[in-house]
Design a protein around this nucleic acid. Structure first.
Length: 574
RNA sequence: GCGUUCGUAGCUCAACUGGAUAGAGCGCCUGACUUCGGAUCAGGAGGUUGAGGGUUCAAAUCCUUCCGGGCGCACCA
C-alpha cells in the first residue's frame, strides 16, 4: 500500500470521469501528475500538482482549475476533510480521521509487507568480484554491501535475485599469485629467502596459504614451479576464495553463484559469443589506433578481432584478441555476459569500483549487441572510501603491498556500523569513513541513533507488558492525534515511496537517511514528555491513548523492515 | 587531450529524479536531567546551490559554455 499512489489513482480517475465538466479537452494521459507529501510547514497530508500540469496542457489558469478540482474532490471522494489551494495551484489535502484509521489498520495488518512494491522480475547482480589473489580490502567492502542491500531490496519487492561473483581465476595474475605462493613455500620448506619482485604478491596471507598447501600435500617436494603449477593454482585459489568468502560472511554478505572465468574458457563461451557477434557483424578483423596521450614505442599495428562497440555508444572500438591471438580480458567478460543473458535474466546489474568507470561503456555495449538490445546492463559505480581516524586520513604502514583489509576494519568496528555507514551516502559520491564516529554511542553515529530509538520503543512495550503483535483497536470517532503523532504518521506513510525510489533507481542510501529522520521524529516526541507531563505516553502503567501506541508500533514496524533490508541488527535492549 | 563523475551552510552530505520559503548532522551560541532509558531533546546564527547563458508556470536538478576536484583512458585484470 502506497497512499500516494492510492490517492493519485482516485483523483485521476475522478478527473477522467469529469473531463468535460472541467473542460479538459487535452487529456490523453496523466504524465507528470503526482501526489506527494507537501513541505511539513503546510501541515497537510498530501499534495497534488494536477491543476498545474493540466492547466498548462489545456490552457486554463491553474488556480481556477484547482478550484474546480477541489470542489469535485470534496463532493465525490470521502477521504478528505480539507483541501487548500496553495502557491501557483497546488492542491493540499488533509485526510479524514476515518481514512487515517483505515490506512493505519492496513499497515498494522500487513506489517511484514508494508512498503513492498510488488514486482516479479528476474535480476542478476554481479558484485564484489574481487581478484582471487588475496583477502578483501575496504575498497571492495562498499560495493559488497551496496550490492547485497540492493539484492535485499529487490527481493523484498518480490523479485528473483541472483547474487553473483565473477572469479577472475584466469590469466597472468593467477600465475603470479601461484608463483608467490611457490616462493613462500620454498622459503618455509628450504629456507630460501623470499625476494619481492614486480608482479609478485607480498602479503602475509601468502605465507599462510603456503603453509596450508604444504600441510595438505606432504609428499610434494615443490622442486620446480612449472611441475607444481596446476596444484598450486588450484589450491591457492581455493584458499584465497575461502578468505574472501569468510570476509564476506562476516559482513553479512552471501553470494548465490560463483562464476569462474577459467570454466568459461574451458566451455568455449567466448568463442560462442564471438561467433554470435560476428554473425551480426559486430565483430570483425581490423586494426586499432595507437593509444592516445603518451606515445608508446612498443606499440605495433596488428590485425586482430575487434568489437565495434562504437555502434552502441562506446568511444572507441575494443580489442577482443591480444597480439598472440588469445582472448583479452574484455573478450572473456563478453562471453560471461552472454551466459548471463542465456540464463534469462531480465535485468543485469554490475556493481563496480570507481577504477572501472571507463569499462562501463564497452561492457554495456557488449550486452546490447549480444541481446539485440533486449537486455539492459546497468552498471553502478561505487566511489572511493576514504578512511579517517582522529580526523586524519588513516593509512596502515606504507610498506609495499600493505592495504587496509576487511579484517582490519572488522577488528575495530562491528558489522552493523560498517554496513550502515557504507550505505549512508549515495554510491556516486566519495565516502568518508570515520573510525571514531562509528564507535560512538551518540547521535553522531547514525546507526546507534536509529537502533536506540527502537530500543526505547521496546522498553516502552516492556513497561506496558505488551507485544508488538498485540491487536490494537482504533475508533475513528474518537481518533485524535497530537502534532508529533501526525508528523510521525506522515513520515510512516512515506515509507513505501522510499522503497520504490530506492529500488527502482538502485539507490539504497535513501533507506538509512529515511530511518534516521524517522528516529529523529520519534526521539523528539519521546523527549517532549520531559518538558510537559501531558506528553508522557504512560500513566499508572497504562498507555494513555491507544492512538499513541498505534503510532509507536508503526515506527517499530518500519524500523524492522528497513533495518532488515539494510542487514543491520535492531536490538530491543542496548 | 578524450571519457566519466562530482561541485549545495565553516565541514560532511540530503533534497521524493522538474515543484512551493533548498533540508539534516557535525562545529559554534543559548537552554532542559527528583529520567515511561538525558546514550536524549528544545531554540539560534549560518546559502547568489562553482560562474555565465538558455529551456518553462516552475531549475540545485534539463541544455550550453567556462572554472575546479576525483576516477579512468593497454594487447593488464
Amino acid at each position: 500500500m502506497n497512499i500516494f499512489e492510492e490517492y493519485l489513482n482516485k483523483i485521476t480517475g475522478l478527473l477522467l470521469k469529469n473531463k468535460k465538466l472541467l473542460k479538459l479537452d487535452n487529456l490523453n494521459n496523466f504524465n507528470g501528475i503526482v501526489v506527494e507529501s507537501p513541505p511539513v510547514e503546510f501541515n497537510y497530508d498530501l499534495s497534488c500538482n494536477a491543476a498545474l500540469v493540466l492547466g498548462k496542457k489545456n490552457k486554463i489558469n491553474p488556480r481556477e482549475l484547482a478550484n474546480k478540482i477541489k470542489d469535485l474532490i470534496l463532493k465525490n471522494l470521502k477521504d478528505f476533510e480539507i483541501i487548500e489551494i496553495a502557491g501557483p495551484g497546488f492542491l493540499n489535502l488533509r485526510l479524514t480521521n476515518k481514512s487515517l484509521v483505515t490506512n493505519i489498520n492496513h499497515i498494522l495488518e500487513n506489517r511484514k509487507s508494508y512498503g513492498k512494491k510488488d514486482s516479479n522480475n528476474n535480476y542478476n547482480i554481479e558484485f564484489v568480484s574481487a581478484n582471487p589473489t588475496g583477502p578483501m580490502h575496504v575498497g571492495h567492502c562498499r560495493g559488497a554491501i551496496y550490492g547485497d542491500v540492493l539484492a535485499n531490496l529487490l527481493k523484498f519487492n518480490g523479485n528473483k535475485v541472483t547474487r553473483e561473483y565473477y572469479i577472475n581465476d584466469y590469466g597472468n595474475q593467477i600465475i603470479n599469485f601461484a608463483k608467490s605462493v611457490f616462493l613462500r613455500i620454498r622459503e618455509i620448506k628450504y629456507n630460501e629467502k623470499f625476494i619481492l619482485k614486480k608482479d609478485l604478491y607480498p602479503g602475509e596471507y601468502i605465507i599462510e596459504i603456503g603453509k596450508k598447501i604444504i600441510d595438505s600435500n606432504k609428499k610434494e617436494k615443490f622442486d620446480n614451479f612449472d611441475d607444481s603449477l596446476e596444484l598450486l593454482k588450484e589450491d591457492s585459489l581455493r584458499h584465497s576464495m575461502d578468505l574472501i568468502k569468510s570476509d564476506l560472511k562476516q559482513l553479512g554478505v552471501e553470494h548465490d553463484n560463483f562464476f569462474s572465468e577459467s570454466e568459461l574458457i574451458k566451455n568455449k563461451l567466448v568463442d560462442k559469443a564471438v561467433k554470435l557477434l560476428k554473425e551480426n557483424n559486430y565483430v570483425q578483423e581490423g586494426y586499432l589506433d595507437p593509444p592516445k596521450g603518451e606515445s608508446d614505442k612498443t606499440w605495433k599495428k596488428t590485425k586482430r578481432l575487434i568489437f565495434k562497440s562504437t555502434l552502441f555508444g562506446d568511444d572507441t572500438d575494443r580489442a577482443m584478441q591480444k597480439n598472440d591471438g588469445s582472448w583479452t580480458y574484455f573478450a572473456n567478460d563478453v562471453g560471461y555476459h552472454m551466459d548471463k543473458i542465456n540464463r534469462n535474466y531480465k535485468y543485469l546489474i554490475n556493481v563496480l569500483g570507481a577504477d572501472h568507470t571507463g569499462y562501463v561503456k564497452r561492457i554495456s555495449a557488449a550486452v546490447s549487441a549480444l541481446s539485440e538490445n533486449k537486455v539492459k546492463l546497468n552498471c553502478k559505480v561505487c566511489q572511493l572510501v576514504k578512511l579517517y581516524k582522529n580526523g586524519k586520513p588513516f593509512k596502515m604502514s606504507k610498506r609495499a603491498g600493505d592495504f587496509i583489509s576487511v579484517q582490519d576494519l572488522l577488528k575495530e568496528v562491528n558489522k552493523d556500523s560498517i554496513r550502515f555507514m557504507m550505505l549512508n551516502r549515495s554510491n556516486d559520491v566519495e565516502l568518508d569513513f570515520d573510525f571514531d564516529k562509528v564507535l560512538e554511542k551518540s547521535k553522531d553515529n547514525p546507526v546507534f541513533y536509529v537502533q536506540y530509538s527502537f530500543a526505547r520503543i521496546s522498553s516502552l512495550l516492556r513497561t506496558l507488558d505488551r507485544d508488538f503483535n498485540d491487536k490494537i483497536d482504533l475508533d475513528p470517532e474518537k481518533f485524535l492525534l497530537n502534532e508529533n503523532e501526525i508528523s510521525i504518521l506522515r513520515k510512516v506513510f512515506e515509507w513505501p515511496k522510499i522503497i520504490e525510489t530506492a529500488s527502482s533507481k538502485y539507490e539504497p542510501h535513501k533507506i538509512p537517511y529515511y530511518l534516521y529522520e524517522l528516529a529523529t521524529l520519534f526521539h523528539s516526541y519521546w523527549s517532549k514528555g520531559n518538558e510537559d507531563q501531558s506528553y508522557k505516553f504512560i500513566k499508572d502503567g497504562k498507555i494513555k491513548k491507544v492512538e499513541t501506541l498505534a503510532i509507536i508500533i508503526l515506527v517499530a514496524i518500519v524500523m524492522e523492515r528497513g533495518m532488515s533490508i539494510l542487514g543491520v541488527s535492531l536490538p530491543d535492549k542496548m
